[in-house]
Nucleic acid binder design. Structure first.
Length: 311
DNA sequence: AAAATCCGCAACCGCCGCGTT
DNA sequence: TAACGCGGCGGTTGCGGATTT
């Protein structure tokens, strides 16, 4: 059984569109509007699947599409929206006038994702990559250990990244007054002490420096939450904020979060949520090491970037 | 200069949600 | 209520240009 295909597969053209095909599609849409993509190819004289026509129009031919390089503000907006919405490219695109979901998805995968990885930030969770943090913490705190015995356990590339991150992390933690409690090995569940120890890392991030959270490039982002009862879909990795009289964002579940190695306990953009106490302020953090992205971000989601509808 | 590799992006594929029958 | 059909979405692919060897 299965569903019938959206169009007859035989005799339909695939691959790149020709200028003639584009013109036919443009002419048809200008004349008849877009809609009923199933019958459009036939009426427009195109040997294409309706889906293909819709995609071509939506991603390339639409007159309101803005093409060209993403601005730094657009890039920052994508990162912040992705932090909240996850891979909801269409939702993100809806907040970036002139940009398509496909374009944003491609830009994320080819540029932003790699940049975040280079900075030691997990592009899925937007947390510092704990695999690197764990190793770098390990390197920092275990100079007395004979590390060579553990090297076979660690990917060499990962080790290199962790090593480079190691000093950066120290700077970051100091600059932002972050308390990072680290317990390197938990062998309590290991009956056979010859087994490989499990890395765990209880993390407790704090900041007492309000400036740490302000804006990127020294400018506040144009975000604002609609009201104080707003519950964000996701809050990421700043658990407590001491710059004001009250905690802005609840810790995920307890005062000190414990993450197992391998992100098994890591909140994900699509799954975690928490309560917002405060007055329209959403605090999050970033470890930005290059480009024009922020170190610590205090952004407010405005009407333009209202994400409540996606919750 | 040619071959190999990398990279970006347009387009495709398959699944899902929702409205209709 | 279930089946169907369509539009929409996100993940993936593969082509072509750029870069490296």
């Amino acid at each position: 059984m299965g569903r019938t295909p959206c169009c007859e597969k035989t005799g339909l053209k695939k691959g790149p569109w020709t200028p003639e095909e584009d013109q036919k599609l443009i002419d048809y849409v200008h004349k008849n509007g877009c809609g009923n993509w199933r019958i459009l190819p036939k009426n427009a004289g195109l040997q294409r699947c309706g889906k293909s026509c819709r995609l071509r129009w939506a991603n390339y031919l639409r007159p309101d599409i803005k093409r060209g390089k993403f601005s730094s503000l657009e890039e920052e907006t994508i990162i912040q929206l992705h932090r909240i919405l996850g891979n909801k490219w269409s939702a993100i695109a809806g907040r970036l006038p002139g940009r398509t979901d496909n374009e944003i998805k491609n830009y994320w995968n080819t540029h932003i994702r790699k940049k975040l990885l280079r900075m030691g930030i997990d592009p899925v969770t937007h947390y510092p990559r704990l695999d690197l943090l764990e190793i770098s913490e390990f390197l920092n705190s275990s100079s007395q250990l004979n590390f060579s015995k553990f090297q076979p356990l660690v990917n060499s590339n990962l080790l290199g990244s962790a090593t480079s991150l190691s000093s950066q992390n120290q700077d970051f933690l100091q600059q932002n007054n972050v308390v990072l409690e680290t317990q390197l090995f938990d062998n309590s569940h290991v009956k056979n002490q010859n087994q490989i120890p499990t890395l765990i890392q209880p993390c407790h991030f704090q900041s007492q420096n309000h400036q740490d959270f302000l804006g990127f490039n020294g400018m506040p982002l144009p975000f604002t939450f609609p009201d104080e009862n707003y519950v964000p879909a996701v809050t990421n990795y700043v658990y407590e904020y001491y710059g004001s009289s009250q905690s802005i964002v609840d810790p995920p579940s307890s005062e000190t979060s414990t993450f197992q190695s391998g992100f098994s306990n890591m909140p994900t953009p699509s799954s975690s949520s928490t309560t917002l106490h405060s007055n329209s302020t959403y605090i999050t953090e970033d470890i930005e090491r290059e480009s024009n992205c922020s170190n610590m971000l205090n952004f407010q989601i405005s009407d333009i970037l209202d994400v409540n509808e996606f919750v």
